[in-house]
């Protein structure tokens, strides 16, 4: 999968260099980057911003490849987001979670990969979190992420109830330019275990729960933002406790075509392995 990701990214780079001139009009980083499930946002959590650099008259798109390397696992997420008229966005992400040694311990095989696809959609309901200054009214968006696991039988054998699920979220994002601050609050209704990598619902709990997610960022320059995110997560499976996720991130936009995000993410316990500290790297290519 990593190879496929690299290939598609190389293709994107070629494409970008050939259509460089037509890049859409929004300001640098104002479409966020692609969070781990593909939606425009930070690293772990979606923001209310619409992905890509399209203004109200334009279409914009970003492709991304993200690698999350923790002490005992490795996840690669690749995909894209397309934003229409700063109103709607559609996204796709393919996640491949390498179980490394844990796969062998569980009898799945060394380096067994759990895979899922995430189809996302988001609509901006009100406000403009960047243009509207001088008041604190945020940009509000509603979105969903339909997630379909590729190995339903495996995740069900560990207690998951479903191999697919839909997360619904509402978010409020605001940039306060006079303070160079970005703030985001997301409320997500979800049944996903480890964002879906371990299936949906479980033996311990099998109902939707409302999980908040927070991001705060400081705009050091128009090209560089750094901040902190916290994502609450449910705990549905009896076989393994699931912890909240948090990260400290920095994103540098070289230009509208390339942005690099590097983060330290703390993912807590993930099946058999506790205290997963991770290096999160993500490259975004914009059109």
């Amino acid at each position: 999968m990593f190879k496929v990701g690299i290939t598609s990214l190389c293709l994107s780079v070629l494409l970008v260099t050939s259509i460089n001139a037509s890049t859409s009009g929004k300001l640098l980083l104002s479409g966020g980057v692609n969070q781990v499930e593909g939606s425009a946002g930070g690293g772990l959590t979606p923001w209310a911003f619409i992905g890509g650099y399209g203004t109200e008259d334009e279409i914009g798109a970003n492709a991304f490849i993200t690698n999350v390397k923790s002490s005992d696992y490795n996840m690669v997420s690749t995909g894209f987001v397309v934003g229409f008229y700063n109103r709607f966005e559609f996204s796709f992400a393919h996640q491949s979670f390498d179980t490394r040694d844990v796969g062998a311990t569980l009898g799945l095989g060394q380096g067994y990969e759990l895979k899922q696809n995430v189809f996302g959609a988001k609509v901006r309901l009100f406000g403009d979190g960047i243009l509207e200054q001088g008041n604190l009214f945020p940009q509000i968006s509603f979105g969903l992420q339909y997630k379909k696991h590729e190995q339903g039988r495996v995740v069900k054998s560990y207690g998951a109830k479903d191999d697919s699920g839909i997360d619904f979220y509402l978010n409020a994002t605001k940039v306060i330019l006079s303070e160079s601050l970005l703030m985001n609050l997301t409320l997500r209704a979800t049944k996903a275990n480890q964002i879906g990598i371990m299936g949906f619902g479980g033996d311990r709990k099998n109902n939707y729960e409302l999980m908040p997610e927070f991001s705060i960022g400081y705009l050091f320059t128009r090209k560089f933002i750094a901040g902190f995110e916290y994502r609450f997560k449910p705990n549905n499976l009896g076989v393994a406790t699931e912890d909240d996720w948090l990260d400290v991130f920095g994103t540098y936009a070289f230009n509208k075509n390339f942005a690099l995000t590097i983060a330290y993410a703390y993912l807590g316990n993930i099946v058999l392995k506790d205290k997963q500290s991770s290096l999160y790297t993500s490259l975004q290519v914009g059109f």
Partner: peptide, 27 residues
């Protein structure tokens, strides 16, 4: 806005001051 940012960068206006002005203009 982008050209304004370019001009402010060229004149080494501190980032916070840049954003303060942009905030007022964006309003």
């Amino acid at each position: 806005v982008e050209n304004m940012q370019k001009a402010m960068n060229k004149n080494n206006i501190p980032q916070r001051a840049q954003n303060k002005l942009l905030g007022k203009l964006a309003a």
